[in-house]
């Protein structure tokens, strides 16, 4: 997994509306990139909604938010529409972004091997340097913790 000090990789993918988004395209602004295993998992997860609710505060601190998973554009679109998510959700179907950040984990459970994404968040400075990494994210309070880190930059 990429660590603080690394440059943001030159990668991108289509968002939920089919627009090509590259992470280096955000240079000049702070950027929060959060990886999640799957769009709309069956359960109560607050992470994406938290980023949605705090988006204005992130914007006031000159920070953009981007979510990434390996879901398709269609799944991301459905997810965004269902929860009113008002920032790009990248459909990293080729796994280029996930691979570049090193958030892919191979799991061996109950006789089945599977590949998944470790829920993790990266804060990137306006010059394109990763300045903070949350390698394992829990459900609550995460959005606020990231916002605090953004404000302290």
């Amino acid at each position: 997994m990429l660590e603080a000090g690394a440059k943001v990789p030159d990668v991108g993918a289509s968002d939920q509306d089919g627009n090509r988004v590259t992470l280096r395209g955000f240079q000049g602004h702070k950027l929060v990139v959060y990886f999640y295993p799957k769009a709309d998992t069956p359960g109560c997860t607050a992470e994406s909604q938290t980023f949605r609710d705090l988006k204005d505060q992130f914007a006031a601190a000159d920070a953009e938010i981007v979510g990434v998973s390996r879901d398709t554009v269609e799944s991301q679109k459905k997810f965004a529409d269902k929860y009113g998510l008002n920032f790009p959700l990248l459909a990293d179907t080729s796994s280029a972004i996930c691979d570049a950040f090193g958030v892919i984990v191979e799991k061996n459970m109950y006789g089945k091997k599977s590949i998944g994404i470790q829920r993790s968040t990266f804060l990137i400075d306006p010059d394109g340097t990763i300045v903070k990494v949350w390698p394992r994210v829990s459900v609550e309070g995460h959005g606020k913790a990231v916002l605090e880190a953004v404000r302290s930059r």
Partner: peptide
């Protein structure tokens, strides 16, 4: 109790652990 769940890094509710390992499929 909640802090324990946070410490484990549960992704949401419900979160089931079977013999101490998070069960990640639909319940």
């Amino acid at each position: 109790q909640k802090e324990g769940g946070d410490e484990s890094g549960i992704p949401g509710t419900p979160a089931f652990f079977l013999n101490d390992v998070l069960f990640e499929d639909e319940a």
